[in-house]
Amino acid sequence: MREYTVPRVVAKILIPYILLYALYVQFHGDFGPGGGFQAGVIFAAGVILYALLFGLAAARRVVPPDVVRVLIAFGVMLYGGVGVATMAKGGKFLDYGVLAHDPVHGQHYGILLVELGVGITVTAVMIALFYAFAGRRSA
């Protein structure tokens, strides 16, 4: 699709908003619909759209596969890490209330971090799967 001008121009305008919307879904999940799972998929969709229009090589320069592979594990580590942190603070595993002086704030921090972990893992897995499929085509 690299030779078509109109989709490229439209995508160039749209991609920042797709990524911004993913971040909105990620961090606004407490108030509206959405959360880590949806945000991760939308963010990955933005990167995949970029890869479809500007080529796999360009996308791999922006989001290197090695970084993606590390991020897959990092999201789960972040989630588990929050659980370990709550245990270290004297609570139960994933009992976010102990993360701050006010249990309500602790819950907010915990849910924010946990959702971030979910979002990072989902984004990274989706991009990695796309790289794996698209990479086979060119190989």
Partner: peptide, 27 residues
């Protein structure tokens, strides 16, 4: 929790273990 979206508080806090399992499944 002061979180208006019940889905988020159930998913991330009440069912934190479940969601951890789901992320591990994705991994």
């Amino acid at each position: 929790f002061h979180i208006p979206n019940i889905v988020t508080s159930v998913l991330a806090s009440y069912r934190g273990y479940d969601t951890f399992g789901e992320v591990t499944v994705i991994l």
